[in-house]
Amino acid sequence: MTATSPTRRAPLLTLYAACVFAFVYLPIIVLILYSFNRDGVGGFPPRHFTFDWYRQLFADGPIWDSVLNSLFVAAGSVVLSLTLGLLAALALDRADFPGKALFRRLVLLPLILPGIITGLSLLMFAVFAHVQLSLFTVFLGHGTALISVATTELFAGLQKMDRAQEEASLDLGATPWQTFWRVTLPNLKLSMIAAGLLIFTLSMDEIAVTFFLIGRDNTLPLEIWGRLRRGITPEINAVSTLIFAVSVALIIIWYRVRTRGLGAEAQELIETP
């Protein structure tokens, strides 16, 4: 039956949960609040509302250069890790080869390993291979480390998929190649979008691996990092607020996509007798 258990009141637990939410959100709210504070970071209560820090931020050339760099790296990482992640997920799902168990663990390792280990390993590899550190090495690092995210997400998508659909396609005379493009890939659309958004965000935010692979041009997090070393300015609050806003926008886009997908699925269910 569809009936669910009645929710019993638990006032203490509710209060505790509210406190945890406060703990999680308070720093973010403080950060946003002080980006509009004329007198800078700190000082309570904040007074003298201003957009000055945003004005200063928009005139700040190096920040926007680093944003562009980050966007390039993130876009490249999405393409690279989605492609390789899709193949890896397909391989894990349907091929057998020696060392498969090792391969599975290795692919997923950057997901659970502290970033410094992966970052340093890649640094040593770059030096070993006589590759100059640059945005390109950062892109290679992100793309490789984030294959783990794509593989996890797409493998889950493949597992959920009805294998009979592909069998039906082959049965109806489609070649494996056609089946891949017409059945397998469309089925993975939502997983691809989810993985893509996640990889994009993670790459935009990545700092531990980037730290060791960066050349002369900074990504946004490293640019911020550099300024943090020099001291706190509300300009960083402003840029953080913008990053937060973009993250939230991305989440909203993702839920729109997902609920549309779910809506379509529900529609199908209703229409099937």
């Binding site: 939410f21 999680v24 959100y25 720093p27 973010i28 403080v30 950060l31 002080y34 970071v41 700190g42 965000t201 935009m204 935010d205 700092i207 997090p221 911020i224 990092w225 943090l228 706190i232 960083i236 609050n237 953080s240 990053i243 937060f244 993250s247 939230v248 991305l250 989440i251 839920y255």
Partner: peptide, 21 residues
Amino acid sequence: QLVVVPLWVSYLVRGYAWKTI
């Protein structure tokens, strides 16, 4: 969703927030 949102918020941004606090 409210719990998940901060996951998408930059590590650095959150660390920085604590520094200012």
